[in-house]
């Protein structure tokens, strides 16, 4: 009796696992599954797109490339939609963005300085393309992302619970996930208005709605794409895409990255900006568009 009972239960378990696997077929190599049925994307990962933290429209800073000797390297642009690779700002938003680029040229107040430099949280999706690793943990019913940069984290429930009230504003937004086959789809809302999408003052409002798609492609790559919509700032949804690669050092550990505790740059940046402004120097932060045909 006991043996029969065991084999019935085992048989049922195999059948349900097979059903999950079949439902997950998308034509790509199917990733291994965890006991709760989630595709296994655990591990340490690093995005291909860290240069996009400077500008999602123009890629890495060409001045920094000269200093770092990387002028001949590929400089991928993150925006895949619209085709012109520019953020589709509404007219008023485009004007504000131009003003931010002038403020970045001669910053005189803290809000003229990139929040990333000010050791504030990067928000989503920017945390996925600032320099630094990310570690993905998976537990029953949730995916957890630990970012090296500024020790930020996201806990992403998969149980279908709703976003909190829109009155709750969060630096990293509120992430809710679900698996569509092998793709982790994360819906992110409840943003504040404080984070930038890059160092070029690319901004959004608290109406920002982000949808991320994390699709494993083989054991060591995730194809990541993200759609941003914000009816207060953009004329239409736009999309970025890049690869996220596995760090195959199995012994890697994320150690403490103390951004605020060691922050000494902002006062210097502001002092320089104020001095230039007082001397009548003004301008706009811009450079020729690198890496595009």
């Amino acid at each position: 009796m006991t043996r029969i009972l065991r084999s019935i239960i085992a048989g049922a378990a195999v059948a349900s696992l097979a059903g999950v696997a079949a439902a997950g077929q998308t034509g790509r190599q199917a990733p291994p599954r965890l006991p709760d049925g989630q595709p296994d994307i655990r591990g340490h990962w690093i995005s291909d797109a860290a240069g996009g933290a400077h500008s999602v429209e123009d890629g890495r800073d060409p001045d920094a490339d000269v200093i770092q000797g990387r002028v001949d390297e590929k400089n991928p642009i993150l925006i895949v939609e619209p085709a012109d690779g520019r953020i589709p700002y509404q007219p008023a938003a485009a004007a504000r963005r131009q003003q931010l680029l002038r403020d970045i040229f001669t910053p005189t107040r803290r809000e003229h300085v990139d929040p990333h430099i000010r050791a504030l949280l990067d928000g989503v999706p920017r945390n996925n393309y600032v320099p630094g690793e990310m570690q993905i943990l998976q537990v029953p019913g949730a995916v957890v992302i630990l970012y090296e940069s500024n020790h930020s984290y996201r806990f992403i429930p998969l149980d279908g619970r709703p976003h909190p009230s829109a009155q709750v504003k969060l630096w990293m937004g509120d992430s809710r996930g679900r698996w569509e086959g092998n793709t982790l789809v994360v819906d992110v809302t409840n943003f504040n208005e404080e984070t930038w999408i890059d160092s070029h003052g690319s901004f959004h409002s608290d109406a920002l709605h982000v949808v991320e798609r994390w699709t494993p492609a083989g054991a060591d790559r995730i194809d990541y794409s993200v759609t941003l919509e914000d009816p207060k700032v953009f004329t239409r949804p736009w999309k970025m895409a890049f690869a996220i690669n596995r760090n195959r050092d199995r012994n890697y550990e994320i150690w403490e990255d103390t951004r605020h505790e060691g922050e000494k740059d902002v006062e210097g940046i502001l002092a320089a900006g104020r001095k230039e402004k007082a001397a009548g120097i003004t301008g706009i932060h811009e450079h020729r568009r690198e890496g595009r045909q």
């Binding site: 803290r110 504030l120 806990f155 709703p162 909190p164 709750v168 969060l170 990293m172 404080e194």
Partner: peptide, 15 residues
Amino acid sequence: RDMRLLDYECVAFNE
């Protein structure tokens, strides 16, 4: 009900 961690960004408050 629906408990989740929120954020307390002390750095931003000090700014």
